[in-house]
Structures are given as C-alpha cells and as structure tokens.
Amino acid sequence: MTSSALITAIFALTVASHAFALSPISPTYPGQMKDVRFGVSPTKAVAVRWNPEKDEAPLSVRGAIREARIALKKLIPHGVEHFACYDVAIEGAGDSWYYVVRFLSMHASHSKKLDRGIYPAIIPFIVYADGSVEMPFEQKEPIQPAQPTPGS
C-alpha cells in the first residue's frame, strides 16, 4: 500500500468513526468594545420561514435595524447615540434566514486607542424574520480585533 493510499484509508476510518459526532457549524459573528470581545450566533429555530427567491422578506431591512437598535440600547444604556449601523447582511440557507446587523462607534467611550490607531467598537446582532433578536455574548477566548483606523 502506498503512503498516499494509507493516508486516505486512515482519513476515511477517522471520519467514519466520528461521523455520529459531526453537526452543522453555527457561524459566530465577532464584535468588540474596548477590551471586551463579543460574538453572536444563531441559536434558535427560525419561527418564520422565508424563501428569498419566491417572496418578499417578512421583515424589512429597516425593521431589522430598528429591532437591533432597541437591543443595542438594552446592552449599552449610555452612549448608544454614538453607534451607527454600518453593516446589514442576510444570512442563512433554504428557508431559514436572518439578518446580521452590526453597529460601529469610534467614540472614545467605546473604542480603544493604541499607538497603531483606533480600534472601533463593533457590536453585532442577529435579527430573525419574526423580529426577535439574538443578543451578543462575551467571548472568553480572545479573537483577532478589527484592524485599527490608520492615523486615528
């Protein structure tokens, strides 16, 4: 048996022996504020089904931003006016879709300034088609921060 065939056989046996443990990977959308790292992942079954090829979205982009901003005010009760929505994406597959809404602040009370520049505060939320919001959680493991803004 060649080394290539042996590696292929070992890989196939490893995958077969662990196949029962494999599950779909849920994406985590990162964020940060000062020294705190955030993440948000879809965790609930989608209550409202939607096929983007056949129907209009049951929740508008504007509605998703509105619901995410309400959640942002709960998370950050003071200084929320310094955050602007800078990114909205529709994520999902099949008939299970959701919005990922990210807010950004360069304000000194939320961002982190280092010699290399300013690391903005970025807070992500998931908004489901029924208007419910997935709140970000604090990540225990450090993640790579967003790139600083040059010259700031």
Rank of each mutant, 00 (worst) to 15 (best):
P120V: 00
E56H: 13
W50M: 00
Q144I: 15
V80M: 09
S4G: 11
K112T: 10
V127K: 06
H110M: 07
R116C: 08
E67T: 06
I126L: 05
I122H: 03
D55T: 12
S41E: 03
V36F: 08
F20S: 12
L59Y: 06
I76E: 03
Y99T: 07
K54D: 12
L75N: 03
A9S: 05
G79A: 09
Y128W: 07
I126D: 08
P124M: 02
I123M: 03
G39C: 10
L22T: 01
A146N: 11
D95K: 01
H107A: 15
S96R: 11
G94N: 09
P42T: 04
A21N: 11
P52M: 03
R116N: 12
V40R: 04
K34H: 11
A5H: 05
G63A: 11
K44Q: 13
L22N: 00
P120I: 00
L59C: 05
G31I: 02
S96W: 08
F20K: 12
Y98K: 04
W97Q: 06
F11L: 15
H107M: 09
M135I: 06
A21Y: 12
Q144G: 07
V36L: 10
P24W: 04
A21L: 14
N51W: 12
Q147V: 10
R62I: 14
A71R: 01
A21H: 08
P58A: 11
S60G: 10
A121C: 03
Y86H: 14
A12M: 14
I143F: 09
A84D: 13
Y29N: 05
P148A: 02
V133T: 08
P42N: 11
C85H: 09
G117M: 00
H107N: 14
K113A: 11
T149K: 11
S41A: 15
Q144N: 10
G31T: 04
V127F: 02
P42D: 02
M33D: 05
A71P: 05
R49C: 05
S26Q: 05
G117A: 07
I126V: 12
D55Q: 15
S109W: 11
R62D: 15
P124H: 04
G151T: 06
S111I: 01
A19Y: 13
H107F: 10
I10K: 10
F103Q: 00
V127E: 03
P58E: 01
E141F: 11
E138W: 02
G117Q: 06
E56M: 15
V80I: 08
H82L: 10
P52H: 02
I122Y: 00
S105L: 04
T149L: 14
V127Q: 01
R62K: 15
F137Y: 12
T149D: 03
V100M: 03
G94D: 10
S109R: 14
A129V: 04
E53W: 13
E141L: 13
I90H: 05
F83C: 07
S3R: 12
A84L: 14
V127S: 07
S132W: 04
S17M: 07
T8M: 10
A89F: 08
P145R: 02
K74S: 14
E56R: 13
F125M: 01
V133E: 00
E141H: 07
G39N: 08
R102F: 00
S4T: 07
E134K: 02
P124V: 00
